[in-house]
């Protein structure tokens, strides 16, 4: 599904990713962990096509196609979804409009007709119930005056509506209390399937208690320095990152 080879990314003058290589097979959930400033969010942004995140070397293949050649909106329509660490507020554009426009853009790209308004509302309401969100949310501005937890739930709701092939979730667990964490984890787990891949960027292991990854990777100074199975996350929680970084430097 996702194959990243020797990726170098510069943000402004700063080189953040320095030859990152990673493969996420279809159907798997991978966690990217690492200390602050290691390049985790940069990786998520670079894959989603954020302007200013310039790939200077390497390549990224998504289902065999050159992902970096596509503008952000085409990546999304091709099934790539970024769950933001800090979702932006857009007062004046309501959630229902955004969800519908985004879904129809995705359907159009897949050669499907636009969803009719009634069918769409039924579809969204079902997913909102699953995410334990109040219906009044639909008429509110995108993320407008949402709490941190509500914003994260909204990211997962969007993901459930758009049903991406590749979900990149950037610190979706930050700022969540334990109940919200469970709801968000349930949302992520519901999307797991043989034809999708999920990349969880996270700082802590606690989300991984609820969403068990197939692989865990440690990112440091812009490269993957260590990879392992799901137990690696527990070990990192217990021992910190230093031993991995020392071993990789040796």
């Amino acid at each position: 599904m996702l194959k990243i080879e020797n990726l170098h990314v510069t943000v402004g003058e700063r080189k953040v990713l320095n030859g990152l290589t990673l493969e996420v097979p279809t159907g798997e959930v991978h966690a990217i962990m690492g200390p602050n400033g290691s390049g985790k969010s940069t990786l998520a942004y670079a894959l989603a096509g954020r302007p200013g995140y310039e790939a200077t070397q390497g390549r990224v293949l998504y289902d065999g196609q050159d992902l970096l050649a596509l503008p952000a909106e085409e990546r999304a329509r091709a099934g790539v979804f970024l769950g933001f660490q800090y979702p932006v507020e857009i007062p004046g554009v309501n959630n229902v409009y955004l969800l519908k426009a985004a879904l129809n853009a995705r359907r159009k790209a897949a050669g499907l007709t636009e969803i009719d308004a009634f069918e769409f509302l039924e579809f969204v309401r079902g997913r909102m119930k699953f995410m334990q969100m109040d219906e009044s949310f639909l008429s509110r501005g995108v993320n407008e005056s949402f709490s941190g937890g509500e914003k994260k739930r909204n990211e997962i709701l969007q993901m459930l509506v758009l049903e991406p092939r590749l979900a990149l979730l950037d610190e979706t667990d930050s700022g969540l209390d334990i109940d919200a964490m469970k709801v968000v984890a349930q949302g992520i787990n519901s999307l797991r399937g043989p034809d999708r891949s999920i990349v969880l960027v996270t700082h802590y292991q606690r989300l991984l208690d609820h969403v068990r990854p197939d692989r865990v990777h440690v990112l440091s100074r812009g490269r993957i320095v260590h990879s392992g199975g799901p137990d690696l996350a527990l070990e990192l929680e217990r021992r910190g990152y230093d031993w991995v970084l020392e071993a990789s430097a040796a």
Binding site: A72, E73, I90, P91, L98, L162
Partner: peptide, 30 residues
């Protein structure tokens, strides 16, 4: 930031720009 957020949801750039103009203008009227 707002523009990238909308683009990252697959919304066409021209539509995203129109949405943000609308949001800019109606933000206070709300």
């Amino acid at each position: 930031h707002m523009l990238f957020y909308l683009l990252s949801r697959g919304i066409e750039r021209r539509v995203a720009q129109s949405l943000l103009k609308w949001a800019f203008l109606t933000g206070l009227v709300a």
